[in-house]
């Protein structure tokens, strides 16, 4: 029976038929998705923190409006993804709990601080740029709700990257101090950005299963190379440089060669020892705790309203 179900499941995946929440699926597929989608959602939510840091200090009303819109988008992306994960049978509160207790991870990139205004540009250009490369193939991932959420995310994400590049472009054409600030931000964000694609392929020996399930369609190294090729060209428009002495075009490979990645740093940050891990997690826990009275009050209000007017049940208009 089990084998039969599994064959049907794999057959659907092979034929690019999406898997929907109520369909039979291998338990390991469900667990893998819950983990991946919830951690992706956590990344969107925690990702608001480094940027939120600059909202009050944005240099103009235009930049402030853009940044607020972007941060609001990140919240939206987190919500799309939490909803998608919930269709697999995990509750929202369980996911929050996993984040707050450190059981679930979020993208390590958000454990780096945003020291200057230029960092907001670097995040848009590099961090969102890397995220987009990861997310585009996920629009075709085998689980329907995840794929649909990613389509919405990708539509919105491209403004994020463009505003970041535009911000840096403006700085790159400014005073010497502004140019320097721009280069400094690129220097600090470059290596963490290319680490976002995760460990090298040979450090992750079980790619086959996820590829077979079509959860993932490209390997970490494939996507990383694509990103580096893209950014190495774009940086020329900024008249800036990437902080990698080994970065150069390889005519034979038709790709850029690049220097050695410091995986020790990567695992340190994943392990909780990045510059801002504690600060980020504390901020999330505090927000959750501070919001408790709002959640309680809203529930009490809804209950009271429903009991006063049971026929309407709190509903507003008819269709």
């Amino acid at each position: 029976m089990e084998t039969n179900q599994e064959t049907i499941f794999q057959d659907k995946v092979d034929h690019e038929i999406k898997i929907e929440p109520k369909d039979w699926m291998p338990e390991k597929y469900r667990q893998t998705l819950i983990r991946q989608i919830s951690q992706h959602a956590h990344s969107e939510i925690v990702g608001m923190l480094p940027e939120g840091n600059w909202i009050t200090r944005a240099p103009s009303l235009r930049r402030k409006a853009i940044l607020i819109a972007k941060v609001q988008d990140e919240a939206g992306h987190g919500l799309y993804l939490y909803s998608a994960a919930e269709t697999l049978g995990i509750s929202r509160d369980e996911m929050y709990d996993q984040l707050h207790t450190g059981k679930a991870k979020y993208s390590s990139i958000f454990n780096y601080p945003t020291l200057t205004w230029a960092d907001i540009g670097a995040i848009g250009w590099l961090v969102d740029g890397a995220a987009i490369l990861n997310q585009i193939p996920l629009c075709r991932t085998s689980f329907g709700p995840y794929a649909r959420a990613m389509v919405r995310v990708c539509k919105e994400e491209s403004f994020h990257q463009r505003q970041g590049f535009e911000l840096l472009l403006t700085l790159s054409q400014g005073t010497d101090a502004q140019k320097q600030m721009c280069q400094d931000a690129i220097n600090r964000w470059w290596w963490p950005s290319i680490m976002m694609f995760g460990p090298n392929d040979d450090a992750s020996p079980h790619t086959a299963q996820s590829m077979k399930w079509k959860i993932k369609r490209f390997t970490n190294d494939e996507l990383r190379q694509k990103f580096i090729d893209m950014i190495a060209e774009q940086v020329k428009v900024l008249n800036m440089r990437l902080p990698d002495a080994d970065l150069k075009w390889n005519e034979e490979r038709k790709h850029y060669d690049f220097g050695k990645i410091n995986w020790e740093e990567f695992w340190q940050v994943v392990g909780g020892n990045g510059p801002c891990n504690k600060q980020r997690l504390d901020a999330r826990k505090k927000a959750w705790a501070d919001g408790a009275w709002v959640r309680e009050a809203a529930t009490a209000y809804a209950e009271k309203k429903a009991s006063l007017n049971p026929s309407k049940g709190g509903t507003s208009e008819t269709v």
Partner: peptide, 15 residues
């Protein structure tokens, strides 16, 4: 397999 924003459920928890 590691995904974007996904580093498994090892004991590397940040708390």
């Amino acid at each position: 397999k590691f995904y974007y924003g996904d580093y498994g459920e090892s004991k590397l928890g940040s708390s």
